[in-house]
Design a binder for these strands. Structure first.
Lengths: 376, 376
DNA sequence: GTGATCCCTGCAAAGGTTTGCAGTGAAGTA
DNA sequence: TACTTCACTGCAAACCTTTGCAGGGATCAC
């Protein structure tokens, strides 16, 4: 029933190869013939069969998107941007959700490998070595994780954590806590390192609480612990946890920001809607999605997969494009942070950045694209 | 470079057809042979090429998911459920975002048609007739829209709107407003009809405001209009709009729920986190995703697409499974609704359902699966 | 011993497309 | 006129897998 290239060929009185060329190499066919073929194709409602095309070209024009948890509001903007970018380049995207499960991640890469030209691994939870190994099976771009020798799109959460801690210390807080996220998260490690350094530099002290589930529940679960710890300011792994924590503290009668200041990370849409509105480190998720797709496609285009040209199969894995892109983050100060016990009473507090109206100056602009990988 | 069935055949000393059967019809091959083949396949890291398989079987084992707006928190749980359900049945899912654009919807159905065994249309914005037409090209299941002759998964927002209105009237509100959503939304029409009927039955009066964009901004934009209209209770098209409205009213100095009560629809995660916590009509999005995938696959399985068996190509479109499933909704009463001007002072207010702890009794249970379609 | 039955395996066509190669005819050149 | 060049088109192989059909043994019954 489905109309094939053959039907179009018959209808327009040419050979199938001419029809094929009409679509894939139009300059090789006589303009008159071309319009006739196109007319017939239109008439019959012909659409090229991508599976058949993939079989011979070795390129599916699909990419895979592996996501830790679609329900986490951090991801949808990334998915949306990636999908849109891919579509502009005539690619479709498979989306798969791993439920934060490393095993599922691995299986999905395998399952998708033959069906896509490349895979975007977003906030992966599996080990670096496994990622490297999988990258031999299918081109990979990693988001939110630094893997030696692989193209990565990173967000500068280190800088973000630093800004947040400086902001808190500037407000007069000395005893800070970091609410850790998943153990295997690269972001988590970066934040921890940067926050600790910044706290020390500012004469403060940083307690690390966690690891925790990166969810609202994960946040509210540690409220009691936060209260007992006596800290006056908390930097959470992400907004969801920050919001959960605020809820939890509220239930315990601890007021935010009067008694405890809370900073999140991500600037999800939600963070503008809670009360108090959340002070948070904005991450350029849309830009990350677009950049990752671009890097993947660029990598791909250089070497069609089922390459059968001269020299195919000789040099095996030399194609690696190992650029890494670091995207800027941006502290957005709202209402969940306030003066701490060491605040200097009179002067207006020095905030690293302007208040609420989210600073429009380019978040999401790549700051560095280093040529080669750095050990994580 | 990629290892094919041929490599496995060579390695294990059998014909390729035996290897093929080892995977697709294991009972037809000698157990000894089978283990040998499987061992070789494992060794070589063989994975069947789904494109090639699709070419001959006519089934891609992929499905498409077309979504109005991934960034709308209503959808991610649906996507997540659908993807998970599909994967359990060895299907992968393409996700595409249309940005609420009907034209994009149509294009995406076309683009995906050859690459999937069926498409889930979630909250489509295009016309019913176009949907029917597209369904001749590829099996379709429609979510949140009733289309004659097509399998549909609906959520009983009519019932939900009724409960909400009854709740508000029970609280003593008489002058109600409905914040409409997108014009082309089926849900919107259903809500409007049911809310109007319920308001009249309860001796109230319903003003319709809209259509509006189904977003937070869409909600906050009508705050002024709501205030001027003098209503004391509002039912919004969805939670996002309800939250936006509350923000907007707050900015105007109108307190919720003291001066105006607000009810949303969807029960997105966010609605539990705002202040005041949102009273809302919970829709079973996860169940909808799962059900839709099941219906699609069931429809599919009955008739492999490129069927070449006896009688193929004779009866053309008879396969239609036109079941429609209606899923229950559930009013969740939280803090954004309160007594209205006509409230009877003393007695505890009669609420249709228990308060906050979301009633666990089966939301998402299909209530009716009618055999044939009903005109929308 | 003959024939039938059964299990397993191999053969080859088919699915829709791309692409290197060769062929055709016309136009251009000497 | 004869030869080259050029633009266009057709031919057929190839991509990887599935599957109807038939062949080859072995087993079994008579």
């Amino acid at each position: 029933m489905p109309v094939t290239i053959r039907d179009v060929a018959r209808a327009s009185g040419v050979h199938i190869s001419t029809v094929s060329r009409t679509f894939s190499a139009p300059h090789l066919v006589n303009p008159e013939t071309r319009v006739r073929v196109l007319a017939c194709a239109e008439d019959l409602g012909y659409r090229p069969n991508r599976a058949a095309r993939a079989l011979i070209t070795g390129r599916t024009h699909n990419i895979g998107l592996i996501i830790a948890d679609i329900a986490n509001p951090f991801f949808p903007p990334l998915i949306k941007a990636a999908e849109s970018q891919a579509r502009h380049r005539d690619y479709h995207v498979f989306v798969a959700d791993t439920n934060e499960d490393p095993t599922a991640e691995e299986e999905l890469v395998h399952a998708l490998a033959k069906q896509v030209d490349g895979v975007l691994l977003c906030s992966p939870r599996m080990s670096n070595s496994l990622i490297e190994q999988l990258s031999r099976e299918v081109p990979l771009v990693v988001v939110n994780r630094q893997v030696t020798g692989l193209p990565c799109v990173l967000m500068d959460v280190g800088q973000g954590a630093r800004s947040a801690v400086e902001h808190l210390i500037g407000l007069g807080h000395r005893h800070l806590a970091l609410l850790g996220g998943p153990r295997s998260s690269w972001t988590n490690r970066e934040m921890r390192r940067a926050a600790a350094t910044a706290a020390r530099a500012g004469g403060g002290e940083l307690t690390v609480l966690g690891p925790n589930a990166p969810t609202e529940t994960g946040g509210s679960a540690v409220a009691e612990q936060v209260r007992r710890s006596g800290v006056t300011a908390v930097l959470a792994y992400n907004d969801l946890m920050a919001i959960g924590l605020i809820e939890g503290l509220d239930a315990l009668g601890v007021r935010v920001p009067q008694e405890v200041s809370v900073v999140g990370v991500d600037d999800i849409a939600l963070s503008r809607l809670t009360r108090p509105k959340l002070t948070t480190v904005a991450t350029p998720t849309g830009a990350a999605g677009r950049t990752a797709v671009d890097m993947l496609l660029q990598q791909d285009i250089e070497s069609p997969r089922g390459a059968r040209g001269p020299g195919a199969g000789t040099a095996v894995g030399v194609r690696r494009t190992t650029a890494q892109v670091m995207l800027q983050t941006d502290l957005v100060i709202r209402d969940s942070t306030g003066p701490g016990p060491h605040a200097r009473p009179a002067r207006p507090l020095a905030a690293p950045q302007g208040p609420d109206p989210h600073c429009p100056a380019g978040p999401g602009v790549p700051t560095a694209a280093t040529g080669d990988a750095v050990a994580s």
